[in-house]
Design a protein around this nucleic acid. Structure first.
Lengths: 237, 237
DNA sequence: GCGATGGTTCGGCCGGGAACGAAACGTCGG
DNA sequence: CCGACGTTTCGTTCCCGGCCGAACCATCGC
């Protein structure tokens, strides 16, 4: 029998994620925001008491962290690893059964633009690195990438502080497999910074009930002007 | 409630991995070799009939592929994504509970050198890119990397065909988070090619019952001579 | 043809764990 | 001090799914 450590500890974590209620909670937290137990209960579609038990298990296992604030308890994903695990599982899920790809209208919004933990994903999320590459602002290669000198100027002018959160070992530019597009989008400090900035500029708007992001009129204009991204690049198909 | 697609399909996949018997089967297949149902039953520690059911589910979901050969059925992981999902879950599992678990002697072998699907992991696996970087053969950055001109010569001389399996979209040089070392090791075509070559040279030997790899005397000599890797670099601690 | 070996299908047993309601706890607002 | 709200704990119910053994199917060697 192979190592006890390998199989069984993987199973323990996967079993936690493997319950629909818990998976929906984790999915909701992929938005990157901290949510209260009550909100998570709503997302999962189960009662408060049930939710409490689930959250206890998830924090116990180190998938979530808890922050008490008054009579609320805010939960968030414990690490980017957890978010990445969710993304990969999603990629496996959609790749899996060759048949079966009924995408509802609700999912269409997710495919256009959504958060992936703390960065941008979806068609817009994958179009962005395309644009940056095309203009020589970043060079992507095999799961990682680098920002060119020209890109540094461009991004600084756009309002990004690439030195922010340096240290802590988090890479500046990393790519992450997009489960809906099956192409890379930007993660790492660059990806997180970009999303922050896009939200701050009001180009994108969060949706309180879902990970889907709305592209505002200012965003449509801005992406076209500053990133050479016409709307056709992120709308359906 | 957030998208049906997100949470529930993740849960379905995670639940599959979340059963100890299935997780052990998948772990065994992380060795990259195809295994028969009987072998997998042994790895999982369950009966043949139980195993058959598990394997049916896993293939049905697209995590495994099946290859019939005579009266044997060979199963293998359906894609590198599945392997990556397992690795990340492992990383989450060990990072999870703050209190670290003591690791048994059996796991010590795994920490020294093991296969991660089709490439090399463990202390030796992480020492290798260190050495290649140190000598300017590859340049690693943020989850990916590139082989330098000098590295191409070095690797070609070592017997690697870096053009092999080009196309198919698989990156040449990719890094993969090592769950035991929490540092990157080499994946991608380069990682796979290196492992192949190391096995072919007899520097490493597979273990039929585990993902752990044995370093042969020829390997000890070879790693020191060709890669400037003294044994201290991969032995305990 | 014949057994032997590897795998799958079927039926039934059994335990783990997910769900809920009711009640207790803690915190905020007045 | 009060009630309102958010959350947890407890006790209970109940169903899903893993496991096995036995029978059945397929392939190999002879």
């Amino acid at each position: 029998m192979s190592s006890i450590l390998s199989g069984n500890s993987i199973a323990a974590v996967a079993a936690l994620i493997g319950d629909p209620a818990r998976a929906n909670m984790l999915s909701a937290l992929m938005g990157g925001q901290a949510l209260t137990a009550g909100e998570l209960a709503w997302h999962a579609g189960v009662g408060a008491s049930t939710t409490s038990g689930h959250l206890a298990k998830l924090t116990e296992a180190g998938l979530l962290t808890l922050e008490r604030q008054g009579r609320h308890r805010y939960y968030r994903l414990a690490s980017a690893d957890v978010a990445q695990a969710m993304e990969i599982l999603m990629a496996v899920a959609v790749a899996g059964p060759k048949r079966h790809r009924p995408v509802g209208p609700k999912d269409e919004a997710l495919r256009t633009a959504r958060t992936c933990y703390d960065h941008l994903a979806g068609r817009l999320g994958t179009a962005l690195p395309d644009s940056l590459c095309r203009h020589g602002h970043v060079a992507l290669a095999d799961g990682g990438g680098a920002v060119t000198a020209r890109g540094q100027r461009f991004l600084a002018e756009f309002g990004l502080d690439l030195e922010h959160d340096r240290g802590k070992g988090r890479p500046l530019c990393r790519t992450c497999l997009d489960w809906s597009e099956r192409r890379p989008h930007l993660a790492g400090r660059l990806g997180a910074g970009l999303l922050d900035r896009l939200l701050a500029l009001g180009w994108l708007a969060r949706n309180p009930d879902s990970r889907a992001l709305a592209i505002t009129p200012a965003g449509v204009q801005g992406f076209a002007d500053r990133f050479d991204l016409a709307p056709e690049r992120w709308t359906g198909g």
